[in-house]
Amino acid sequence: MTVVEVDELAMSYRAPVRNGGLRAALGSLVRREYKTVQALDQVSFTIGKGEVVGFIGPNGAGKTTTMKILSGILHPTAGRVAVLGDTPWQRRAPFLKRIAFVRGSQPVGGSQELTVMDSLEYQRLLYDVARPDFRRTLDELQQLLDLQLDRQLRALSLGERMRVGLAMALIYRPEVLFLDEPSIGLDVTAAAQIRRFIADHVRTTGATVLLTSHYVADVTSLCERLILIDQGKLAYDGPFAELSARLSPYAADLLESLREEDR
């Protein structure tokens, strides 16, 4: 069963540009100039139910833009996208209740004075989670993520914030998870803990995951399949082993050893 369908996806936007200096600044008051930035160009792929796919590429390649389109934050310029059969940017409530988008750069939004428990309780209300289900999932998450429910969000460290961000996303058991750099800024131990948690979660719930990361260990330990994107274009889509074989033997060995290490 296909959960994510992306067909000929394109995203471009106009960015204002001008030369340096006062003359150019005054000129731009009368006539503004723009340049078109092509963030995504004819990107197509599909993701099946329960797949964990690594979405990799250099900075500015279009990974986060794709994630934002798939979760419904951005409206693409062209192409067709369906996630769980829905058009994401229509942001219909039933669709939003089935997906989660966790960003390593902003893992926890909303009120920072609240405690972790208050924030989770708010999620329960928002996502209409029945109390017994909430209690059960919370017990699991608390064990796996070592949550301190009485702490205020503003007082949490980066690693703790990421764990809370994951807990807030998973408390309503979404079917599709978009994880954008979930281990960014974390130390080795915390990053490994997050990776282990994601792997456990996928194994027990069968959730579909699309994961971006600059850390090789993240994608190699979690994903059998990789999608490589570069300058907005799809450069590779296939098994991890094949991509590593295409790279130099040294790099392939390195990737494999990192993968083993994480296991």
Partner: peptide
Amino acid sequence: DGTLSHELLRPQ
């Protein structure tokens, strides 16, 4: 600051 995106993803 872009945190409106958090609000857009909430089912409300």
